[in-house]
Simulated assay, not measured.
Amino acid sequence: MATWAEFTAEQPDMAAFVQGRFAADRHALIATLRKDGSPRISGVEPDFARGELWAGMMPNSLKSKDLRRDPRFALHCTTTVASMTEAGDAKISGTAEFWTDKDAYLKDLFDRTEWQPKPEEIDLFRFDVTEVVQLTVEGDGMIVLSWHEGRGTRRVEKK
């Protein structure tokens, strides 16, 4: 698994694009796996900070329970027709690590946003990435740029 910093060092332009798409609307969708293996889609606010990709969740929320049981996830930026054609689309997949030492992250969060939940008010996850996808519209076609850990990037044009 690659940390966000490792991915960024390998693919700085793609990382900047993807972070920009997630920053355009702080709300995103995360797919997790339920106990029975079926998918669950939930809202989440990903945070790119300190060279890592993070997300805080309500303690013991269903998505938090899902990730603690099975750490695989897929994250998708908020996309509208306008944002897809004007700005593009971004997706990230990988695994989540339940983070118990929250102090440094919460201090950094406060320094950046002036918001600091109490440690017991948040289940914190740090995400490693195995796949990152960037989609853009060019003319009447779509460009899909995908990165997979250990395989590098691949570009596909779809008409």
Rank of each mutant, 00 (worst) to 15 (best):
A2W: 14
W4P: 00
W4E: 00
W4H: 01
E6A: 15
E6I: 05
A9P: 01
E10A: 15
Q11V: 10
P12R: 04
D13K: 14
D13A: 14
D13S: 14
M14V: 10
Q19V: 06
G20Y: 07
G20E: 08
G20V: 06
G20F: 04
F22W: 09
A23P: 03
A24E: 05
D25Q: 11
D25W: 02
D25K: 08
D25F: 04
R26F: 02
H27Q: 11
L29Q: 10
T32W: 00
D36E: 11
S38N: 11
P39V: 02
R40A: 15
S42W: 01
V44W: 00
P46I: 01
P46L: 01
F48V: 00
A49N: 05
E52C: 12
L53Q: 03
A55Q: 08
G56C: 10
G56K: 05
M57P: 00
M58I: 10
P59L: 04
N60P: 00
L62K: 10
L62T: 09
L62M: 11
S64Q: 03
K65I: 14
K65G: 09
D66N: 13
R68S: 06
R69F: 07
P71R: 07
P71S: 08
A74L: 08
L75V: 03
L75D: 03
L75N: 04
T79H: 01
T80K: 03
A82P: 00
M84D: 04
E86K: 15
D89L: 11
D89S: 14
K91R: 15
K91E: 14
I92A: 05
I92Y: 02
S93A: 12
S93N: 09
G94C: 06
G94S: 06
T95E: 14
E97T: 12
F98G: 07
F98Q: 06
D101F: 08
D101Q: 15
Y105P: 04
L106Q: 05
L106G: 06
L109R: 14
F110L: 07
F110D: 10
F110N: 08
D111E: 15
R112T: 02
T113C: 01
T113P: 00
W115H: 13
W115A: 09
K118M: 10
P119G: 10
L124V: 08
F127T: 01
E131A: 12
V133A: 10
V133Q: 12
Q134W: 05
L135P: 03
T136A: 11
E138D: 13
E138T: 12
D140I: 09
I143M: 15
I143P: 02
V144Q: 11
V144M: 15
L145Y: 07
L145D: 12
H148Y: 09
G150A: 07
R151N: 13
R151D: 15
R155D: 05
K159Y: 05
